[in-house]
Amino acid sequence: MHEMGIAMQVVEIAAASVPAHIQSPRVEQVNLKIGKLSSVVPDSLRFCFEVITKDTPLEGAVLNIEVAPVVARCRDCGVEWTIEDAVFRCKECSSGSVEVISGRELDIISIEIAD
């Protein structure tokens, strides 16, 4: 639902990152990292990206999305583990004091431009 706004931000950042000296650049790949806990649907994002990149240097670029797992750390016993089914209680000591250390990412890592 909010993927269009996110796609627009991706395009804005990617376009601004193309080195100025490149004549008529063509971006071939855009590499993103998206955490499982961020509410982004990759297919929706790809669709929005395709729509808004028409007639821009990003037209036809492939959106590579690396999905980052939700990793938590227990503040009480220090154990780290990957959360699969939205249970945010320590798997070892059942503490509720749990810190999410990965899984909220919504980052643009890099772009690849045709030489």
Binding site: Q9, I13, V18, N31, D107, I113, D115
Partner: peptide, 20 residues
């Protein structure tokens, strides 16, 4: 990043938050 890299492609590192 990916298994096959395009020939002659230039990679620009960005490392920014999309919602910055």
């Amino acid at each position: 990043f990916k298994t096959v890299k395009e020939e002659n492609a230039m990679e620009v590192e960005i490392g920014r938050k999309v919602l910055e």
